[in-house]
């Protein structure tokens, strides 16, 4: 056994990304460039950040459907406070981050203390956050605040003539931090234990309540941070921003090799899951004649493929006991 079997799903994800990038490069002129790769990051920075939070939730055996709505609410609150109330961004950004975290904390507490399915609690959270957007305004609020526009337009130049945005730096920092948290802190390992078996985690004396609530708090925080990044990207607040994003996020996490039942998966897998979704969109836009709905079709097929792969690996494992 040269490769540890637990790394198979993540290697498949990584391999798929490489194959897709190679295929695009052969087929389309101009595809094979660093900037195409960098644009994947630029266009999906907010998705990356959201998916990191979602990875922890799914690893713990839960699900969070509220992420898209929290992004929308964040853009809405930011735009309203900055644009209409004239608050400084230095106050608004920490404020929305706290708001997202508190929202996640509340959902986590309800899930744990009332023993309610995460699906239904975060579904309620999804409707609540989306509804709150329209309390602020039913229209788009465009932002022309100097700080926001300058962050949106800043290009960080890389050697070779390509560039990334500030949002990309934020996303990469979040991913690096998440990998560290997942593998080198007790909280991270407790999340994996919780996803493996909640009953066992309890009997092993692990802090189940704290871990569970913190997972949803973290997801709320990530969603709010993604909302901030999304505000830079769109320069507006709107109640219909990021509709259905929770499903894209879940898809990215699963394509990244994380088991929906929890306990198995890697943050870096999620990174490539997002990148695969991005590259599908890029290929379709290079193709030019295909409707953007083809993205959904390919993602749907990939999801089927990955779920079946996981099932096969589990089946194979049970026949390969040492």
């Amino acid at each position: 056994m040269s490769v540890n079997r637990k790394f198979i799903p993540i290697l498949v994800t990584f391999g798929l990304f490489v194959v897709m990038f190679a295929a695009g490069s052969f087929r389309y002129t101009g595809f094979f460039s660093l900037q195409v790769l960098m644009n994947l990051l630029v266009d999906n920075a907010f998705l990356l950040i959201t998916a990191v939070g979602m990875s922890f939730v799914i690893l713990s055996g839960g699900i969070d459907l509220s992420v898209g709505s929290i992004i929308a609410l964040t853009t809405m609150v930011s735009a309203s406070l900055v644009q209409q109330q004239g608050w400084p961004p230095a106050v608004v950004i920490p404020l929305v981050l706290v708001m997202g975290s508190v929202f996640g904390y509340g959902m986590g507490a309800i899930i744990h203390y009332f023993k309610i399915q995460p699906f239904i609690v975060t579904l309620a959270g999804m409707f609540l956050a989306r509804g709150l957007c329209y309390v602020i305004s039913i229209d788009t609020i465009t932002i022309d605040n100097a700080f926001y526009t300058s962050v949106a337009q800043t290009k960080i130049h890389l050697p070779g003539g390509s560039f990334v945005s500030i949002s990309v730096i934020i996303a990469l920092v979040v991913i690096a931090a998440a990998i560290y948290i997942a593998h080198y802190t007790r909280f991270g390992r407790n999340v994996y234990a919780l996803g493996g078996s909640e009953q066992s985690a309890l009997l092993m004396g692990l802090p189940v309540a704290k871990t569970k609530i913190l997972v949803y708090t973290l997801s709320g925080f990530c969603s709010a941070l993604a909302g901030v990044v999304f505000t830079f990207y769109m320069l507006s607040g709107y109640g219909l921003h990021a509709v259905g994003l929770e499903l894209d996020t879940i898809a990215a996490v699963v394509i990244g090799g994380t088991l929906l039942t929890g306990g198995v998966g890697y943050v870096i897998g999620t990174f490539f899951g997002v990148m695969i979704q991005g590259i599908i969109q890029t290929i379709i836009s290079f193709e030019g004649t295909l409707s953007s709905w083809w993205t959904k079709i390919v993602i749907g097929l990939l999801l089927f493929f990955f779920i079946l792969l996981q099932r096969l690996l589990i089946a194979r494992r049970s026949t390969l006991k040492l």
Partner: peptide, 13 residues
């Protein structure tokens, strides 16, 4: 926890 490594199962916490 079946998903964690043997070493982790002994030492987690």
């Amino acid at each position: 926890c079946p998903n964690l490594t043997v070493a982790e199962n002994i030492y987690i916490g």
